[in-house]
């Protein structure tokens, strides 16, 4: 049986791991290569690295880091941050990334989704969406790390992106991110039950029970978290044992 995936996320700045709380107030949480290897040993199903500096001059640092990670870990990993062109994708894949994640650039130029899907395959194109529930009761797409609001509904953008060829969606609720109060179950379930691609839920995971909720009520295919893993508030082996005991299909 296909299992639900647990995905630690490593935010990278200048080759080091950081975690933003509500996308600001960064703290250093270690060396990404060592941390990645640790998570692979612990039973993480996949890893995601988001380069939050992502400036042109930092590109080379990221590429070298991706290469080091690829030589060290034996599970799939995704790299995101500042990817705009086929050449950006090609370099990351050549250095061992399995998938790339795109966000603002794809929204501003949706054509890149179909180009990436055609050239590299949908299976390696992950669309990251930062979303926020507004007072009008709708979930809107935000860009640029959550700093810029759009008037586009999350469901509309997700559907368009799937039609263009994204293979997975990484959905981060800005209302929940950093709160440790649980994932955004309703928008995650809405996307997951409407779209034919896997949904990775992100933002708000604080306890083992929150993961259970997002896999059952939230219908997520995978769940992502960062600081609770980095600071060992939730240990992946315990989390997986808990989910397995609760009847969730999980890789032990």
């Amino acid at each position: 049986m296909l299992t639900k995936r647990i995905i630690p996320c490593l935010d990278i700045k200048d080759g080091r791991t950081v975690k933003g709380v509500n996308f600001e107030d960064l703290r250093d949480a270690g060396d990404p290569v060592e941390l990645a290897a640790f998570y692979a040993t612990e039973g993480a199903d996949e890893l995601i690295f988001l380069d939050i500096t992502a400036t042109v001059e930092k590109r080379k640092t990221l590429t070298e880091l991706v290469n080091k990670i690829a030589h060290k870990i034996n599970i799939p990993f995704t790299v995101g941050g500042g990817i705009q062109t086929e050449e950006d994708v090609r370099i990351l894949l050549q250095n061992g990334a399995d998938k790339i994640s795109i966000n603002t650039a794809a929204f501003q130029n949706p054509d890149i989704i179909s180009r990436f899907a055609k050239n590299f395959g949908s299976q390696c194109v992950v669309l990251a969406i930062d979303t926020k529930l507004e007072a009008d009761g709708n979930w809107y797409v935000y860009l640029k790390g959550g700093r810029e609001k759009t008037n586009t509904l999350t469901m509309d953008w997700a559907r368009q992106a799937v039609d263009l060829g994204v293979g997975e969606i990484l959905l981060t609720s800005m209302n929940h991110d950093g709160t440790k109060q649980g994932f955004a179950l309703d928008i995650t379930a809405a996307l997951s039950s409407t779209l034919p691609v896997p949904i990775i839920a992100s933002g708000g995971g604080g306890t083992e029970a929150h993961f259970y909720d997002v896999f059952t009520e939230g219908k997520a295919d995978a769940a992502l978290a960062a600081s609770i893993f980095h600071y060992k508030e939730v240990a992946i082996p315990n989390l997986k044992k808990y989910l397995n005991n609760k009847g969730v299909a999980i890789r032990i």
Partner: peptide, 13 residues
């Protein structure tokens, strides 16, 4: 079944 995703992505036995 619309809840089954294609392609299959992830860990299976």
């Amino acid at each position: 079944d619309p809840t089954i995703k294609v392609p299959q992505i992830g860990w299976n036995t």
